[in-house]
Design a protein around this nucleic acid. Structure first.
Lengths: 119, 119
DNA sequence: GACATATATGAATACCTGCTCATATATTCA
DNA sequence: TGAATATATGAGCAGGTATTCATATATGTC
């Protein structure tokens, strides 16, 4: 039986390869996880979430605290809302945003520790 | 003393605002954290890290397991190396990659749990 | 040395993303 | 109702990113 003239000589399409593939994340899982990290992978959004970690705030206060225009912040809040990371409470003409998901604080803290360690 | 015709009437430039600003992350911290998440915010890289979570692998095996061309994988490995998330061990003409930072597994697991919960 | 193999890299391209500016919507107040 | 305020949103643009394809480098084999 001729072994195919394969290259680096490891997995080929053996049982081992199939076993490994089964242990990996599904496509849907990978996509969801990457999307979550994508949402956290922007400075403005990190600042917004960091701000909201201290409590609910209206849009103009968030804009002031993160140092961005209200328009830019509003656009980002829309994305964060769509990802269910924040929620709105509307009072009159104001919109108060808060974290909708406190696991995010954990991820943020872990990342913070991580970058501090390898500094 | 005329209160400025401010708008939503919250923080203004009071002591409170200064106090809050001090509690927020520094610009450098925000940038590092966002960069880390950016690195995790791509499906191919998530797959690569997930694969390496099972152990060291050579480039062509990684390419096979994540279902991408070796070139694409090599480009991504370069970025992951630059971010110190993976490291290489060269043996002959092969390059074996491994996680250089096992905290990453924790972040990946947390993200995984997170997306599974809100599914 | 000549050739095959494993990986790396540069250039080009197609796509995506975040901001600004202008404008819309909705609410409050006179 | 009309003006002011708080937020939301669409279009457009500038910059960034992931892939492919072609090619380079480096190692091993004959």
């Amino acid at each position: 039986m001729p072994t195919p003239a394969d290259s680096c000589g490891h997995l080929h399409d053996s049982r081992e390869l199939a076993r490994l593939k089964r242990a990996l994340m599904t496509g849907a899982e990978v996509a969801s996880i990457a999307d979550l990290f994508k949402m956290l992978g922007d400075g403005t959004r990190v600042r917004i979430l960091d701000t909201l970690a201290q409590g609910e705030r209206c849009v103009c206060d968030i804009a002031e605290l993160v140092g961005m225009s209200e328009s830019a912040v509003s656009h980002q809040l829309r994305l964060l809302r769509a990802s269910r990371l924040v929620r709105v409470r509307r009072v009159g003409r104001q919109a108060f945003y808060a974290l909708d998901d406190h696991h995010i604080i954990g991820l943020l803290h872990d990342a913070r520790r991580h970058v501090q360690e390898q500094a």
